[in-house]
Structure formats: structure tokens, C-alpha cells
């Protein structure tokens, strides 16, 4: 199973996600990337992220994404 960072790197290999405090404000992810990310997270962790959870706050940082995963029953 890939880590969140691995998945982010698959989507945008040119960016250093570790040095960003807000992936959206920093332009590392756009709205198309978020949809791709949700699909990859769903597939990778065998979950279905709730449509109401697809909001910017849940994708700003790795800890925010991990919180979202935990909410969906994933142990990270």
C-alpha cells in the first residue's frame, strides 16, 4: 500500500510536498488534482471518501489528508 506522500508524488512528481504548509494555496494541487487524489485514495485504501468531505481543508497538508483517511476507518 502506498503512503499519502507516495500518492501525491505520483500525481505531481515535480513538487516537494514535504516543504509545503498548504498544498492548495501553494499551487501544488489544483481542483483536477484533488479529484485524481480522491480516486487514488479510494482505490489505495479501499474506501469511498464522502462527497461532503471533498473540501479544500481536507487536502491542504499530509496530516489533513491522514485525518480524512482516519475518519474513513483507515489506520495511518
Amino acid at each position: 500500500m502506498n503512503s499519502v506522500i507516495d500518492i501525491l508524488k505520483e500525481i505531481r512528481p515535480e513538487f516537494d510536498f514535504a516543504s509545503s504548509r498548504d498544498f492548495l494555496a501553494d499551487g501544488l494541487l489544483d481542483s483536477f488534482d484533488i479529484v485524481t487524489l480522491v480516486a487514488k485514495l479510494d482505490r489505495n485504501y479501499g474506501i469511498s471518501i464522502h462527497g461532503t468531505d471533498i473540501i479544500p481543508e481536507n487536502f491542504q497538508t499530509v496530516p489533513a489528508i491522514q485525518t480524512l483517511l482516519r475518519k474513513n476507518g483507515v489506520k495511518v
Binding site: S31, F32, V35, S48, H50, G51, T52, I54, I55, P56
Partner: peptide, 23 residues
Amino acid sequence: VMDAIQRAKAGATDFRTNFFPTQ
């Protein structure tokens, strides 16, 4: 909008969308 998306997503077997707006 979020509620409507969730209604479509609930029970989806192969969710598809072309809706990617920023908030």
C-alpha cells in the same frame, strides 16, 4: 451542492463526475 454530490455518491458502484469546481 455538496449534499447533491453525496446523494449521487451514496451507494455508487462506479462513481463518475465532470464537476471539479473550487469552492
